[in-house]
Design a protein around this nucleic acid. Sequence first.
DNA 1: TCTGGGGTCCTAGGACCC
DNA 2: TCTGGGGTCCTAGGACCC
Length: 426
Amino acid sequence: MARDVFALVDCNSFYASCEKVFNPHLADKPVGILSNNDGIIVALSPELKKLGIKRGDAAFKIDKQFIRKNGIYLFSSNYTLYGDMSNRVMQTLHDFTPDIEIYSIDEAFLSLKGFKHLNLTKYGRQIKRTVYRHTGLPVSVGIGPTKTLAKVANRFAKKHPFIEGVFDIIDHPDKDKILRWMEVEHIWGVGRQYAKMLRRNGIENAFQLTQAPNKWVQNKMTIVGLRMVKELRGISCINLEEDIPPKKEIVSSKSFGTSVTELLDLQEATAEYCLRAVEKLREENQVASQITIFISTNRFKNEPQYANYASARLPLPSAYSPDFLHAAATIMKKIYRPGYNYKKSGVMISDIIHQSKAPLDFFQPCYLDDKRKVIMDCMDEINEKMGNHRLTYAASGIKKPWQMKRQALTPSYTTSWQHIPVVKAI
DNA sequence: TCTGGGGTCCTAGGACCC
DNA sequence: TCTGGGGTCCTAGGACCC
């Protein structure tokens, strides 16, 4: 059997790079992208990183003076734009191999198993050039015999400018040196807790981790950790997942732009999240029978705290929005306590199955059989054609005092005719 | 004034059954 | 005084990812 070969293609500072594509004057400027509610920094251009700002920093804590002095640009996140740019990148990658796993909005694993006769580094460079030509986005390419080592190679490429964005660890003469360079916290599968634990035990880099006994690793990090360590040793354990597995749960939750105190506001905000969640459920042709609602106050504030959640089951699996809206409002009434400033609520839909597997009931019509599905299909179609949520339920409110803040949103250049960039003749 | 959102997997422990 | 054992299912919590 031929040995596996993986390439990890990863967009550099993806969100920030997307903004730069449509604002060329930002090319060498420090750019940051904010989370919902313009709360924290979620993506940074290299120039912004150099100024000492980190992912996760609260936007309001960054000194205004500092922003002005360094010419920093901060934007609200524009997921419509990023989603569309992501599709374009993935389309391009598909031209290089049919075996591709879209791992996240800005990353894909490619299987290059049948390509060993090629110079893989050269091929990687070709991928990088082509993606740039098609989308204007810079990517890094890491190549390795396992997914985990492709990740290592990718990081190595990113951190060493002289490599020019493409690194193949397979034929590197001194792999141990690369693994020694890789600190444990940056290994794929090692998070904050495991990194601390490993360092406590004298393991500081990937090479040292490969030397740890299997038993010890499994004991401390479960079989998931053991799999990762084997991958670092060059034994491929994590396969390419080409088809996207159906979701097992769907969560929609958001902090409010301004905190709310009234039950009705909470119900309306949650109804909106609920509608989004059920919409996603329908997109995958699934039905669900369990709904969970959760609410909480602002944990950063020095004021009375409260958090609670509760679930309900639907009599039959459904994807009909009102079934869920009704359950959500009832649960909310149960968990709501007056006298608190609520900052966040959310909906989780679980017990999900494909609609074709939904059980039938002798006494009541199921979702697929009656008008409910027709109504939902119709609504989804109109919303897709006319723009998001042109058609909605009054349950999600009219005034929406809780709506999130997005004060520095850029246009949806590629998905909206109103926002399409204009080329002017001079 | 202002601190994100959406997922998955594994394990331990309790409930329940025979 | 003596107080089973094993299997399965479910849930909560903890870890990770982007």
